[in-house]
Design a binder for these strands. Structure first.
Lengths: 167, 167
DNA sequence: CATGAAACTGAAGTACT
DNA sequence: AGTACTTCAGTTTCATG
């Protein structure tokens, strides 16, 4: 699981942006091909890629895996309300739910709920068991609202937004 | 954006599972190192990796990018109710919202809403503008509920679940 | 642009079923 | 016999200074 953490403001020029977009669409591209696609020398491409990684812009290269193929045919988003919503209770719940095998993502939110948990499980029976057995075994869970996910589209390439007021 | 599609049932043995886990944690590992980590020959590792890709288990290698670094310091989940929730209206809305620059993911759901849209924008002003300008310009949007995301943890490695009843 | 490393291919060979 | 894996040699491509 990743944590968001505060970092120094990062300045990205056009080349950084191009490299990021190419790598997002294929993280296993060779440095040669990356360089060619970004229209720079391989040396420059390599330097920039390393810099992006060391500055924390690139966290890691990961795999987009088909969830049904790995025995997780059912996905859901589960909105959870926590009582009391103190830091201690929130963080303890977050850490606990992150470790569960069913969990693929955790959103800590403000609004109508405190958490939205993204789970991927084998089938509806497992989803039901997750909600009524595991979640409700926690006494801080005051309310649970489950939405079954029919379809999950994910943007493969997330574009870089220019700072407000730029160009 | 990816689509979920029906596929033949996929059978994964222990080696496939090991390879999937290694690649999920570092998609840019060399085949040699992958083979060593999975304790098989490079030839075998290469064959398996290709097979996993051709069977659609591995969709693509992508990059985990730090959103604040690319000008997207604010994330939100926006629950949307659509009227009427007919196939035609749902699919049209889904396709439209997928193309928006702010959108990083779209969940099509059953439950308390029809969509949950994951957006990542520059700041709160942009989030507000997205909700009150762009979303509500669509007449099929009957209801909108925004939850600001304080933190988003994502499981880097999603384990393979054994079929029900298997060992 | 040179050098060493890695990827890939195809052909045999081994082992377990 | 068939499947899965390994080893090896040869060629091509790549990373890196």
């Amino acid at each position: 699981m990743n944590d968001q953490q505060k970092r120094d403001p990062v300045l990205l020029d056009d080349l950084d942006v191009r490299i990021l977009e190419i790598l997002q669409s294929d993280a296993r591209i060779t440095n040669r091909d990356l360089a060619a696609a970004a229209r720079v020398s391989p040396t420059t491409a390599l330097e920039r890629t390393r810099s992006l990684r060391s500055r924390g812009v690139i966290r890691q290269a990961t795999l987009d895996v088909d969830l049904p193929s790995i025995g997780r045919g059912v996905q859901a988003l589960i909105a959870v309300r926590i009582r009391p919503p103190s830091r201690q209770v929130i963080e303890a719940f977050r850490d606990w739910v992150s470790t569960l095998d069913e969990t693929v993502g955790v959103f800590v939110t403000a609004g109508n709920e405190d958490f939205i948990i993204h789970v991927a499980v084998r089938d509806n029976d497992d989803l039901y068991a997750f909600v009524i057995d595991r979640l409700t075994e926690r006494r801080e869970v005051a309310d649970v609202r489950t939405s079954v996910v029919y379809q999950h589209l994910r943007e493969n390439v997330v574009s870089v937004l220019a700072p407000r007021g730029a160009r």
